[in-house]
Design a protein around this nucleic acid. Structure first.
Lengths: 167, 167
DNA sequence: CGTATTAATGAGAAGGATTATCAATTGCAA
DNA sequence: TTGCAATTGATAATCCTTCTCATTAATACG
């Protein structure tokens, strides 16, 4: 899904290749702007990761993000993906999710109040996003009633497709 | 919390100690019965872990379970605790929970339909259990509406104690 | 526009939680 | 009681993630 930007074949031109790529990387993206807005240093790698993330509407894990980022700019290490993903999470740019399987998965944090939830297909592991205002309100009232302010909701429902279901 | 059953000082009686402990372990427990009901071989270690679990009303991680199990019967290894906990989960005896912090935590699976949820105090990490029939019903209807049967709900709400709150 | 300064990066080592390995042991059925 | 398949203990291996440190790059300042 992520655009593959490679203006030069790696291995050609030697030193020149390196210098040229310094200026290439990838275009800015909404997330790159966000990065700047938060006062984070916008390095080439961060711009690349932001670009890849802006281009994703699923819930990639770090390994998958790394794959997509390398397709855009091979000069990137998985350590940086781990670091960046953590940084972005700490700055409210990304949200970490746990869908089981032992690895964290990430998605772009849509502004403060467009909470959505996840339904996980028990057979396929497919993740279906949904929103539900009634659920928002109910969770909020439950928490408030117990003397708390809601900070985050981590909800995943595991479901099995009903027999005779459509699609 | 777990009873400490040690009828003999370790180190005394040598061979005899070993033979004696074979017959001691710990009493049966509701979970040990469940274990038998599922056709699982009821080894001494499993009986011990079942006993410890029946005695717990919190959400211990494996390390903590190991600690409690060793207090009952020192002849147990952490590998077995990992194995047993996984076995019990696969057999619907335990439920695995993720409260963040990178380690799985476990609790006894109360029958199919006494779902409860967790509110996590953002400052202290304390876990507060609660039930809510309205929430049960709403989640069920959401899932059904999408053509699924609800298998499991994984919900933790992170909240911050309201300023001026009681207690 | 060049330079210093400070932070970010890459590569791989280290860490923590969990699973796998395998010889020795044990529960259970006959 | 005996035999056999399953389980255990000890530890190595694995997986995901973070750390380390020398090198490189982004920003502020002149």
């Amino acid at each position: 899904m992520a655009a593959h930007i490679s203006l030069l074949d790696p291995g050609r031109l030697f030193g020149l290749r390196y210098i040229a790529m310094k200026d290439v990387t990838c275009p800015d993206s909404p997330l790159a702007d966000l990065c700047r807005q938060r006062g984070l240093k916008l390095t080439g790698q961060r711009r690349t990761i932001a670009f890849v993330l802006s281009d994703s509407d699923d819930h990639p894990d770090v390994e998958e993000l790394y794959r997509r980022a390398v397709a855009v700019d091979p000069r990137i290490s998985i350590a940086t993906v781990y670091r960046t993903v953590r940084l972005f999470e700490e700055n409210g740019i990304l949200q970490r999710r746990d869908f089981g399987g032992g690895r964290a998965r990430y998605e772009v944090a849509d502004g403060e109040h467009s909470d959505h939830y996840h339904l996980i297909d028990a057979s396929t592991g497919k993740v279906i996003e949904f929103e539900n205002a009634e659920l928002n309100a109910l969770l909020d009232s439950i928490v408030r009633e117990k003397g708390y302010d809601l900070v985050t909701t981590r909800l995943s429902i595991v479901g099995r497709r009903k027999a005779g279901g459509e699609d």
